[in-house]
Amino acid sequence: MKKLINSADSVVTDALRGLAAAHPDLRVDVKNQFVARASGPRRGKVGLVSGGGSGHEPLHAGFVGYGMLDAACPGEIFTSPVPDQVIAASSAVDGGAGVLHVVKNYTGDVLNFGMAAELCADEGVEVATVVVDDDVAVRDSLYTAGRRGTGATVFVEKIAGAAAEAGAPLAEVRRVAEEVNSRSRSFGVALSACTTPAAGVPTFELGDDEVELGIGIHGEPGRTRSAMRGARELVRVAMDALHEDMPLDGDVLVMVNGMGGTPLIELYVAFAEVAAYLEEKGATLSRNLVGDYITSLDMQGFSVTACLLTPELTRLWDAPVQTPALRWGR
């Protein structure tokens, strides 16, 4: 394993120092391990706080800024943040209108954010929570921890962030966040495993002719291992999984997301197939993102996330945003 790091133990704090040096718009609290807007909370604006394990960059810290998150709490690599981080961040960004926690549905995230929310309430910070669970590879049943939260997190953070920026109250921001989540689905495919600095070896071994279908974002193996195929066929597997769960129709926001080690040219190859698929189904490719937005360290592969837009969601998606990883309109 070769990584551009100083040591496995310091990678998260070293990266936070880099983030601070690169983005004067961000306030990076290395000690309490959270990242917030340097401008501080705005009186009367709902605060948006997210977080999760590190290794998914630019998620979440790359989405802190005008029109999106107020703060992000990066945990250790692939490890949910601890409640203290979330409490510190929530207190730091509360403008008196309460704070929405955007939590990806993983046991660890749900537990740690849950504990933090209880303690925030004790400290007088009103907290609402949206749990993102968009991954159709996992059946939501009594026999799983429920669907995982993956790509839709980016959509929820952008769209709920725009609602909060526009002055919507906490209940309304949560409603919008939940609407985005309920209208979004994701599916991921790995061409290779990833290597965490702590483990030092790939999380699984894949043959040259194999792929993992239905992966999450933590380097776990997927639901099934399958034969390697061309981009067209792999995209079809992913899109069929989305379409079966939620018929793709009307205006669709689509993200073709790289897992961290996938060349951008390949993501565009995949995006061409996604566009063709949508056309075949009669859906309209209305808005899109192509690139690395929610990654798994150095994993090669991609995920597709689709959100069925409404006029309101489209308007909020188009609203100005100014963060390290997503920026338009200002």
Partner: peptide, 12 residues
């Protein structure tokens, strides 16, 4: 443990 571990095992 709650303050330092994170993940599922930390809170549990």
């Amino acid at each position: 443990l709650i303050r330092k571990v994170g993940g599922a095992s930390g809170p549990l």
